[in-house]
Simulated assay, not measured.
Amino acid sequence: MGRRPQVDHEELARLSATGWSNADLAAHFGVTESGILQAKRSAGLSKPMTDHSTAIPWKLARPHSQSGPATNLRNLSAAAQGRPVRKEKINTAIRWATRLVETGRDIAYDQEQGFHEIEAHEVSHIAQVLRSAREKLG
């Protein structure tokens, strides 16, 4: 088995900055486009991925992953991480979370029932997620 081709990070940065596509870079370095994406991550040339695990700490069942609460939590999480979120989407998420907090409610999840509202405890999950988003949004 041969050695994997090496991607020179300085050359990768230089060529990327001049507008080379991932396909062109892959052909130039003799690797796949996936290899180029890995090299860009390794070289610090790609944006870090958004991590929603704080806002959505549960393992979601597939039918629940695109539900309103999951979408709102992801939008609040993205805003908290400084990612752009369309105005109407973040406004919807903030209104939803604010309603829960102001009425003493929180969000919970289980695989069978999906998302559901519960009485908020001292440390409300939704209040923390909302606070993080508002702090970043200003």
Rank of each mutant, 00 (worst) to 15 (best):
A80Q: 06
S124Q: 05
A70D: 02
R62W: 05
E122A: 09
A55Y: 00
R105D: 08
E117Y: 01
L100D: 11
A79S: 14
M49T: 14
A78K: 07
T98K: 12
V85Q: 13
A61P: 00
D106E: 14
I126A: 06
K47R: 09
T103L: 04
A120I: 03
E122V: 09
R86C: 12
E102Q: 15
T98I: 12
T54S: 07
I126Q: 04
L100Y: 04
A61G: 05
Q111L: 10
A79W: 00
T98M: 06
A70H: 00
W96S: 06
V101M: 13
R95E: 15
A120H: 01
I90K: 12
R86G: 14
L76H: 07
A93L: 12
S65F: 07
A70Y: 00
A97V: 09
Y109L: 02
S65Y: 07
A61D: 07
A61C: 09
T71K: 09
Q113L: 11
G104E: 14
T54N: 07
R105V: 07
P84Y: 07
H52S: 03
F115D: 13
N72T: 12
R62L: 08
H116M: 15
T98L: 08
M49V: 13
F115I: 08
I118H: 13
N72L: 12
A127C: 12
A80I: 08
N72W: 08
H52N: 10
T98R: 14
R74L: 02
I56R: 02
W58F: 03
A93T: 11
E112V: 06
E112I: 04
R74P: 00
I107L: 13
Q111K: 10
K87H: 14
E119Y: 02
P57C: 07
I107Q: 02
T92S: 15
V123H: 14
P48D: 10
V85I: 15
I126H: 02
T50N: 01
I56N: 00
N72C: 10
N75D: 11
N72A: 15
I126N: 01
I126L: 09
G114C: 06
P63W: 01
Y109C: 03
R95F: 11
I90M: 12
Q81A: 07
W96V: 09
N75P: 00
S77Q: 02
I94H: 10
D106W: 05
P69C: 09
V101H: 14
K89A: 12
F115E: 14
